[in-house]
Amino acid sequence: MGNINPSYLHIGSTVGAVFMALMVIFIRLKASERPVTIRKIWIPPLGMSTGFAMFVAPQVRFPLWWAAIAFVIGWFIFAYPLIRSTTFEQREGEVYAQRSKSFAFILLGLLLVRTLLHEFINQYVSVPQSGGIFFILAFGMIVHWRLFMYKRYNVLVHSKKTPSTT
């Protein structure tokens, strides 16, 4: 009774990833209607960081260099499309994220790449280990993206408006 079929874990993780991607798309589209704050920028990676608790379980653990590679891939490759599609604008003295028509397609594309990589990696590691690897990859991606957002937000908030010449 304690054993779970690995194929069920694989199906569950894929369905969970699709659900999360759709939720992120929905939340991001709604978020463009409200001002951006520092709290809204940093809460997602802080909340996600609780996922590191999964490494308490021995079956999830893997070599540290695997984690470093996954983090670097997330940081440099997977974050790039999100960074390119994220822009801010100032309206009525507040900063808003501009809606990007490509954002939903980028997230779905990242999900497709993640699923294909997952299929490949599952041939060499267990399902819990691949879950841990992809968690670290996603964490690297979101931290880099949010750091970019934070820097861009600060530039907009602290920029002095130049007086217009008439």
Rank of each mutant, 00 (worst) to 15 (best):
29 L>A: 09
43 I>M: 11
21 A>D: 11
16 G>T: 06
17 A>M: 11
28 R>D: 08
16 G>Q: 09
42 W>M: 02
14 T>H: 05
16 G>M: 13
40 K>P: 07
18 V>P: 01
45 P>I: 05
39 R>N: 13
21 A>V: 15
19 F>Y: 12
25 I>A: 02
43 I>H: 09
11 I>N: 06
27 I>T: 11
20 M>P: 05
28 R>T: 06
33 E>P: 00
25 I>K: 12
11 I>H: 05
42 W>C: 04
33 E>W: 03
24 V>G: 14
11 I>C: 03
32 S>E: 04
36 V>E: 03
37 T>E: 01
30 K>N: 02
39 R>D: 11
16 G>P: 03
12 G>F: 06
20 M>I: 12
39 R>C: 08
14 T>D: 00
17 A>S: 12
43 I>S: 10
36 V>S: 05
28 R>H: 10
12 G>D: 08
13 S>R: 06
34 R>F: 07
28 R>M: 10
28 R>N: 10
44 P>E: 06
34 R>S: 00
29 L>R: 14
42 W>G: 02
25 I>N: 07
16 G>R: 10
12 G>I: 07
14 T>F: 11
32 S>P: 03
35 P>D: 05
38 I>Y: 11
34 R>C: 00
23 M>I: 06
14 T>Q: 07
12 G>R: 09
24 V>Y: 15
26 F>D: 12
26 F>V: 03
22 L>V: 00
36 V>K: 05
43 I>K: 10
40 K>L: 05
40 K>G: 09
37 T>K: 07
25 I>C: 01
21 A>G: 15
9 L>I: 00
18 V>F: 06
10 H>L: 15
27 I>V: 14
36 V>Y: 04
34 R>A: 03
38 I>R: 11
44 P>I: 13
10 H>M: 15
29 L>M: 13
23 M>K: 15
29 L>C: 07
36 V>N: 03
27 I>G: 02
40 K>Q: 01
36 V>M: 00
44 P>R: 08
24 V>M: 15
29 L>Y: 12
27 I>P: 00
30 K>V: 02
25 I>R: 11
24 V>E: 15
30 K>Q: 09
10 H>C: 12
